[in-house]
């Protein structure tokens, strides 16, 4: 019982302590706006949507213009650096850090707005 009590105490204390450091993430949402679903729905379901979409797009060639990682980035990349991952408060990174969820997409995918990427390539 004592052990249980101390465990509960730990559970309560640890997040409080963490809360002083973090707080609700301030995100650079880029252009922002709603195109697929409302914000709460997207917060909760975007990962399922992306996973569903990636199989459709890659394996079946069904490329949805709206529901695609590229399209998310198009609106949500920062207006300053055209990226969803470049800074601690970038759209994807900021929230994933807050929720402590590993962000695996961008080991392969570009986190940049395509127009910006093309500009950068052509400048080379």
């Amino acid at each position: 019982m004592k052990r249980l009590a101390s465990l509960l105490l730990c559970l309560c204390v640890a997040p409080t302590w963490a809360g002083e450091v973090t707080g609700t993430p301030k995100l650079d949402i880029g252009r922002g706006g709603q195109c697929v679903e409302d914000t709460q729905w997207m917060r909760k379901n975007h990962m399922h949507m992306l996973k569903h979409q990636r199989d459709e797009a890659l394996r079946k060639g069904i490329r949805d213009e709206k529901i695609s990682l590229k399209n998310c980035i198009e609106c949500h990349a920062s207006m300053k650096d055209d990226s969803v991952i470049a800074r601690a408060d970038s759209f994807c990174v900021g929230c994933h850090k807050y929720e402590a969820v590993k962000l695996d997409c961008f080991e392969c995918h570009s986190g940049k707005r395509k127009s910006a990427w093309l500009q950068q390539r052509d400048a080379k």
């Binding site: 309560c12 997040p15 409080t16 963490a18 809360g19 973090t22 707080g23 609700t24 679903e37 709460q40 729905w41 917060r43 909760k44 379901n45 399922h48 949507m49 569903h52 929720e99």
Partner: peptide, 26 residues
């Protein structure tokens, strides 16, 4: 704690957290 409540609100949907079905949405 404060942060727990925050996280909760952050993820809460009007549909309710317990029974979220992805398929109908799609």
């Amino acid at each position: 704690s404060e942060i727990d409540t925050q996280r909760r609100n952050f993820l809460k949907t009007s549909a309710g957290a317990a029974a979220v079905l992805i398929a109908p949405g799609f």
